[in-house]
Design a protein around this nucleic acid. Structure first.
Lengths: 146, 146
DNA sequence: ATAAACCTTAGAGTGTGCTCTAAGGCAAGA
DNA sequence: TCTTGCCTTAGAGCACACTCTAAGGTTTAT
């Protein structure tokens, strides 16, 4: 099957602007053109585009995705570079996942506090502590009077 | 304890530029000033700054963090808004975590392929399939000859 | 008193990833 | 043939989160 840029946009959820931007950035060197210069995507192109979106969705920079695509275009000789690229990327994603989980725990703690039956009392306690901290340092109270 | 902007920068890992940017964006209305206009941070301020970094690290936009800080300044009357804000944020973070995990599985699949003993053969197979896909659609082969 | 090292502000500049506009070519139906 | 609606490009514009510069005031040590 052959697909126009709008069809690919509909299939992937990317805008046609974004697809052209990716092409301009060197991410789509494999996409063919017809006699008029229109892009013609094939199913194989969609598989590669899926990989690109996968890397993008895990936070890889466009410049690094480009390096990966250059590797794919180069064939089997680039396997070592692909491995290095993806291994480094994988480590970054794992670190990000862990940080996300830790930070989310704190958000959950706050949410638990706000959902507690004595939420008002607890929040008032926090506010009192913050005011005491300012007073102990000889600083004005920045919290509006309730 | 009282801390200068540089001391807070060293403690948090944020630059002094970023701290001033956050202040300008309304994220630090609770930070006091001395007679000369210098910012004076207290330990209580660092707790709030930690919360700000926690929200930032989970991908919350500055404008939403500002709304949360406005809530904190307003005291217990804003508990419902804080709950709404954090609940919505939590859902987004969970969705992001899940997407990250799914996309990482595909990266891992690719890595497994490249690490396999027959990696070269598999990559050559992929390349052959991509070339066949182009040929089947009457399109030129974009892959350089090896 | 003066130099060095802080701090302040306003506002300009940067990097990333889009997002859109303008000007024009191509395709298909009335 | 004309209109409508695609497609193309180059390049401008935008949103976000910083990051830095310039000009000037403050603090501290010598």
């Amino acid at each position: 099957m052959r697909y126009s840029i709008q069809e690919v946009a509909a299939k992937t959820g990317l805008s046609s602007y974004t697809l052209r931007y990716y092409d301009k950035a060197g991410l789509l060197p494999f996409v063919a053109r017809n006699a008029a210069g229109y892009r013609i995507f094939t199913d194989g192109d969609l598989v590669l585009l899926h990989t690109i979106m996968c890397l993008k969705n895990t936070g890889m920079a466009i410049s690094d995705i480009r390096r990966y695509i250059d590797d794919v275009m180069a064939g089997p000789t680039s396997i070592e570079d692909r491995k290095a690229l993806l291994t480094a990327h994988r480590a970054k994603v794992l670190a990000k996942q862990q940080a996300l989980t830790e930070n989310l725990r704190e958000v959950d703690y706050k949410l638990g506090l706000y959902a507690a039956p004595d939420a008002v009392a607890q929040v008032q306690g926090e506010l009192a502590a913050a005011r005491a901290d300012k007073a102990a340092n000889g600083l004005a109270d920045p919290y509006p009077v309730v």
